[in-house]
């Protein structure tokens, strides 16, 4: 057996690390409790306690689903798909130049153009498509167009951000090789950059399309067309058995679109 070592003290963390860690956790817990209290100040707990009863009540009204309602949903479903697809198309078309202007290695000007492009990306990304829809319905009136533009505006930031990150990660050697042949700026983009980012581009676009399908199902809540419009009117008339049918249609659509996008991404990557 090994022996003969004198007693040494081993501490998992130094006392200072220990205190810092403890303080960190304490701070997080305190902040959470504080936020919780602030948040629930006006909560009426009687309503919360009543929730199980409400839930069973609503559950009872949701079942059985009113299947006949399905026939009124085909048109809104078609609209929803169009909102998502056309919106993605618009978003992608605008996102491409924005991404090139935002990427450090392709931007014409680091100090003037790039910040503007980044600002466009952040603005588009921070604002949910439902808020864009809210604004657009107020501006250009309810309908599919508002939904399409809302989806498009939200997609710009998402697609442009992922795309410009892909552009920044390209292999510079290929760019140098093309530049060495005396190619112009546009030719360099055409021959050296686009082939490298094309798979990423298709992957990102399809991924966003998948997300947009989910988002476009609810845009109708604020008047921007599609299934959400039906949801809104069923909710306002408390027709819960129709709500169930809408939920199931949304679920099916989401599952199918996820499957399609997974297949397409597998094919391009």
């Amino acid at each position: 057996m090994i022996s003969g070592a004198d007693t040494q003290i081993w501490q998992f963390r130094t006392p200072k690390q220990h205190i810092l860690r403890w303080l960190g956790w304490f701070w997080l817990v305190a902040l959470t409790v504080f936020c919780w209290n602030l948040m629930t100040e006006d909560t009426i707990w009687a309503f919360v306690a009543d929730a199980p009863r409400q839930a069973s009540d609503i559950g009872g009204r949701m079942l059985p689903p009113r299947w006949g309602y399905l026939n009124q949903l085909w048109q809104p479903l078609w609209d929803t798909l169009n909102i998502a697809t056309l919106g993605t198309l618009i978003g992608v078309i605008i996102a491409i130049p924005v991404a090139f202007l935002a990427a450090g290695n392709t931007t014409p000007s680091r100090y003037f153009v790039r910040p503007v492009a980044l600002l466009i990306i952040v603005t588009s990304r921070s604002i949910n498509s439902l808020i864009w829809a809210l604004l657009l319905v107020a501006i250009i009136g309810p309908g599919l167009l508002a939904g399409i533009i809302a989806i498009g505006l939200r997609s710009i930031g998402f697609v442009a951000k992922l795309l410009y990150e892909a552009i920044e990660e390209i292999d510079e050697k290929q760019v140098e090789a093309i530049r060495a042949t005396g190619a112009s700026g546009a030719q360099i983009i055409d021959y050296a950059i686009i082939p490298q980012i094309l798979p990423a581009f298709w992957g990102i676009s399809v991924f966003r399309w998948d997300i947009n399908i989910r988002e476009s199902t609810i845009l109708g809540l604020v008047g921007a067309g599609g299934l959400g419009l039906q949801l809104q009117s069923s909710l306002s008339t408390l027709a819960w058995n129709q709500v169930t049918v809408i939920f199931l249609v949304i679920l099916a659509t989401v599952i199918v679109s996820e499957w399609v996008s997974a297949k397409v991404r597998q094919a391009v990557l």
Binding site: W78, D79, L81, N82, T85, L86, I139, I140, G141, G143, L144, L145, I148
Partner: peptide
């Protein structure tokens, strides 16, 4: 898809 989008161009013009 584009044909199924009905746009009230007058309303849009007003909205501008």
């Amino acid at each position: 898809a584009i044909n199924s989008v009905e746009v009230d161009w007058f309303r849009v013009y007003e909205g501008l």
